[in-house]
């Protein structure tokens, strides 16, 4: 199986993003970092496929080291 890079949330994409921002809304920066870390771990477990997780990590890393900084 290969990583799905198309929109997999359909019309719920905006709602999902709004939920993510809402979860962060009243957190301190440290708490926000922790939330992100936990979320990644929870979602990795939900994906449940090592191959997919490796592809996702590669996609997320892509360009990161060569970036001059924030986009």
């Amino acid at each position: 199986m290969s990583l799905n890079t198309d929109n997999n949330l359909g019309i719920d994409a905006d709602d999902a993003y709004a939920a993510l921002l809402e979860a962060h809304r009243h957190l301190t920066p440290e708490q926000s970092q922790r939330l992100n870390a936990r979320l990644v771990l929870i979602l990795m477990n939900q994906v449940g496929e090592l191959d997919i997780i490796n592809q996702a990590i590669a996609a997320a890393c892509n360009g990161l080291l060569t970036d001059t900084g924030a986009p």
Partner: peptide
């Protein structure tokens, strides 16, 4: 920064 390469991210650009 992901949107140019990964189509799913485009759905989130608002």
């Amino acid at each position: 920064s992901l949107a140019a390469d990964l189509p799913f991210a485009r759905a989130w650009i608002n």
